[in-house]
Amino acid sequence: MLEARLDQAEILKKVVDAIKDLVQDCNFDCNDSGIALQAMDNSHVALVSMNLQADSFAPYRCDRNIALGVNLTSLTKVLRAAQNTDILTLRALDAPDSLNLVFESQDKDRISEYDLKLMDIDQEHLGIPETEYAATIKMPSVEFRRICTDLMALSESVTIEASKDGIKFTCSGDIGNGSVTLRQHTNVENEKENIEIELSEPVALTFSLKYLVNFCKAAGLSNTVTICLSNEVPLLVSYALTSKAGSNLRFYLAPKIGD
């Protein structure tokens, strides 16, 4: 059976909120190392990958591999009943028909219990190759969201260029064009404001802004976002879910190709 207790329901609430417009039904794959999710959007342009390692939970117990087939709209309805600071416990049997969710207030004076019906989802899993990215940008997540939403007002796509001069986001549309350039920046007093750029070779790729803006719904999960680019491979946008390494919410986006 599965028993997984999260100290803050907020994490799962925000994950589901961030992905529910991209993915409708998906399997939460549970095993002794934690809970993972991988799903593509309907048009197969974007891939969502979530990992919540066992050490993000206390306690965590999962005796055998369990796939929890969940409709995210339904899960959203149940999670709405949880306060951000509630303790959340997930329970399921080995071959479950339903997922049991318990929300406890931190003072333990309120306990809510819900059962969510599960579904059989036959989802293909993709192998994501280990990639040494040519450019890695770590920046405030709200700043990335602002850039994407500002540029989407002008155009449906953005070209991201990484060079020794910095990271340049360029778009052009019917009313005109725009660009935003980011340079490495270290804020000694507030390192959350830092912009870190690692570059091994120049990169230029074009992406749909609709998807990038959608990914930015995860900005509430983490102060910083990591964006990884290499020529001719999908862009990676990654948010840390907890302070523990390995627990993250990742979005991959296929580039626009050809001319």
Binding site: V45, H125, G127, A254, K256
Partner: peptide, 14 residues
């Protein structure tokens, strides 16, 4: 104009 690529053409079966 550029065409939207598909994620499955980059990431295959595991």
């Amino acid at each position: 104009p550029k065409q939207q690529g598909s994620i499955t053409s980059f990431f295959g079966a595991p």
